[in-house]
Design a binder for these strands. Structure first.
Lengths: 195, 195
DNA sequence: ACAATATGAATGAAAG
DNA sequence: CTTTCATTCATATTGT
């Protein structure tokens, strides 16, 4: 992918500018988005959307619309995927209801983000994203960031399809893998955060 | 709910049954709808809705509900876009003052429609659509139409401006293009700003 | 290269 | 009217 931050989709450059490609989040942006989503904020209100956008903007060009679309697609997809997965191993059952307990293994960027947003708990409205900016990035438009650099190389691979609602998940099993198309962390169910 | 229509978008049509769950307006229908909307009738009353439906019906199956939904979505999205555009417009300096000026190249179907509806003016209650029907469709549901055939091949590109009031309107332009996905964007946020 | 898939974006339909 | 869901389309990316 363009890596730069979704701003230069130009593959050949030169003569194909008419079609502005679509936005493609880079690892850092994905990580943040994924985390927010997993934190329970599956449908951020307008205000938050802007905040999130500002945050992601530091890692590459992105618009509020992109954020909006991302969450919307994410939710829809999550739901669909889960419904389908459920049908597979329906009969037997049971087994363990393995509780969620989604926590990061060691000390990964994900863990850090988790802390910031409220860990596994779930979406504490007031501070939310704002604090993150002040803490991590607000420093300025400078360039380098901090932990996020880690994300730049992490290819998190997850098998969400797994047990539908039941698979717990070690969030980031950071590995040196190439950055595949990953996605899915594992979204237990649909948590409807209070509006 | 009605889901009234179900006409085939003819994407890869062939031996595929028209199992269309949701209505998709074809170019002709879109053109008409766009024009009506741009003419100022952003919220046609019940009576007009039926008339419009009858008109569009000649170009493909469509239900009253579809018309209703279309206008409703259109209104909502138009507004959204404007609000967003306003928010976006701030930093950039307005150096070039010739944004619009998008008119059809030669003589387009839009122009014709414009004439029928009363030009670029805006929604004259009494005659409005009615006259169009009498003119174009009254003939019966028979076979081909007249000028509308032109629209069948045009891939218009519209840019709604004021969403109602008295925006100028050349609803359509260009032609010969394949049916991409055009239209404007949607909810909040902004689109991909050019790098 | 081409095929397969993932995923961002557009829009019809419905719910609140 | 505003917001949300579901479906569909187009494009970016990865694999063979």
């Amino acid at each position: 992918m363009d890596g730069g931050g979704g701003q230069s989709p130009d593959r050949h450059a030169a003569g194909r500018p008419p079609v502005r490609s679509r936005w493609t989040p880079n690892p850092e942006q994905r990580l943040i988005l994924e985390f927010i989503f997993n934190s329970g904020m599956v449908n951020p209100p307008k205000g938050e959307t802007v905040r999130i956008r500002k945050l992601l903007e530091r890692f590459g060009a992105v618009g509020d619309a992109n954020i909006f679309y991302w969450f919307r697609n994410r939710r829809s997809r999550s739901r669909r995927r889960q419904a389908q997965a459920q049908a597979t191993a329906a009969a037997a059952a049971a087994s363990s209801g393995s509780p969620p307990a989604a926590a990061a293994p060691g000390g990964s960027a994900a863990a850090l983000l988790g802390m910031m947003f409220g860990g596994a708990g779930g979406y504490t409205s007031p501070p939310s994203v704002g604090m993150m900016m002040g803490d991590v990035d607000c420093g300025g438009g400078g360039g380098d960031d901090d932990l996020f650099a880690i994300a730049r190389q992490m290819g998190y691979r997850s098998m969400d399809g797994g047990g539908g609602g039941g698979s717990s998940s070690s969030a980031a099993a950071v590995a040196g893998q190439q950055q595949h198309q990953m996605y899915h962390w594992c979204q237990p169910g649909e948590a409807r955060p209070p509006p």
